[in-house]
Design a protein around this nucleic acid. Sequence first.
DNA 1: AAGTGGTCTAGACCACGTC
DNA 2: ACGTGGTCTAGACCACTTG
Lengths: 241, 241
Amino acid sequence: MQSQSKPHRTYQALRDQLAERIQNGVYSEYQKLPSERLLAEELDTTRLTLRDALFQLEIEGKVFRMDRRGWFISGRRLVFDPYLDKGFMTNVHEQGMTPDTKLLKLEEIKASSTLAKALKLAPGAGVYHLQRQRFINKRPVLVEDIYLDQSRFPGLRHTDINGSLSLVLKEVYSVSVAYSHIEITPVVFNALHAKQLQVSPGTPATLITRTSFDSQGLVVEYDKEYWVADILKIELATQSK
Amino acid sequence: MQSQSKPHRTYQALRDQLAERIQNGVYSEYQKLPSERLLAEELDTTRLTLRDALFQLEIEGKVFRMDRRGWFISGRRLVFDPYLDKGFMTNVHEQGMTPDTKLLKLEEIKASSTLAKALKLAPGAGVYHLQRQRFINKRPVLVEDIYLDQSRFPGLRHTDINGSLSLVLKEVYSVSVAYSHIEITPVVFNALHAKQLQVSPGTPATLITRTSFDSQGLVVEYDKEYWVADILKIELATQSK
DNA sequence: AAGTGGTCTAGACCACGTC
DNA sequence: ACGTGGTCTAGACCACTTG
């Protein structure tokens, strides 16, 4: 009926139709959808209109794309409590999923003015830049850039940091995080990060920026995590006031 | 230069170009952009490609739309600390902006099964449903649906609740919130909410779901807030561990 | 080699906001 | 009344993934 009455927003109706299919389990988690051309034909619409509907669902995190590979049904989300802020490895494990980490880059750079400000250093100071990619159940879900005061962690580059960085900092350098500032912002992946995560550029992402301090208020690390938006669920409890 | 080499992703370049303009203050906060047709011509592209670029910036919250009115440059964001979770009125005031509230609906309903679960009531129990629209500097920025146990707040409908609801609950019913559970999820506005906020359906939104408890662990209210995504900035600090 | 997703073209119509 | 944004059509080409 709705296809005959020519409503002036077909793609919203399409979105609802697809959302319902997902809700009803017509497609299962991580299943690949039929090709856009096929699906469009099946749903009696054009490719462009179908894509509009899929983009809506992508923003909501109900489907996700892998670049040039197609559309997939999103799976269970990882619950992230920014207040507790457990490490990635721990958090993923506790929720019955399998975490993995791959070091993409470890370099020594000079602090730009923004970076210096974040780390409370002088501009030009030596800084470690780590770039890591992290996986949940083999799916790449984030890339992160970590910046550390080089003078504070000498020889860091000769250390194995494929697991928990905070563990390394604690055991090797006796530095532990007391508290941190966290910011959560919606962004889209740029070309580089998109390629690393095998998603399309322009895919919605959640940026978590974290500045960690030790008990004396010194900056331990400055961290920018770019998450694929569909995997994350932010959930927290305030304490009694 | 880049416009002559025909790269295979023009809209990303466009996005960058526009983002740069915004960054450099070519447009000022809340300024309306030229019409899509004009802007497309100026930037030597088609309307559709321009829109793709604008959608990217919309997801990032750098521009926002008002339905059928056009595209606008986003302004300063409201910082929201889910852990402190001050009330809307207080929070907006403290950041030097002007809050407003409009009651859209106040009705008595029977709890659906999901609602009953959230409020820890029996299905079919009497529930107040409040719907409010809230403004920052006259711009509508959220609609919220609030649900309360009717038996616990008799006569609520005869009370003025255009300001702070928690204040009313405290002063009239001696009930105050001790802690709450908060969930933050990206969604898109449905047709109804979009209309109420004068945004286009499908606009990115941030859904904040809050369940508030009193000191005895009883549910005080269950609240779903749909925010225009560009206005919010989530920021918090963890306490010392 | 074939098919796919990503991108783009060059239009069109309509409902709505604005004047 | 006019122009705008929202939506849709009917194609096309290319780079890339997949078989």
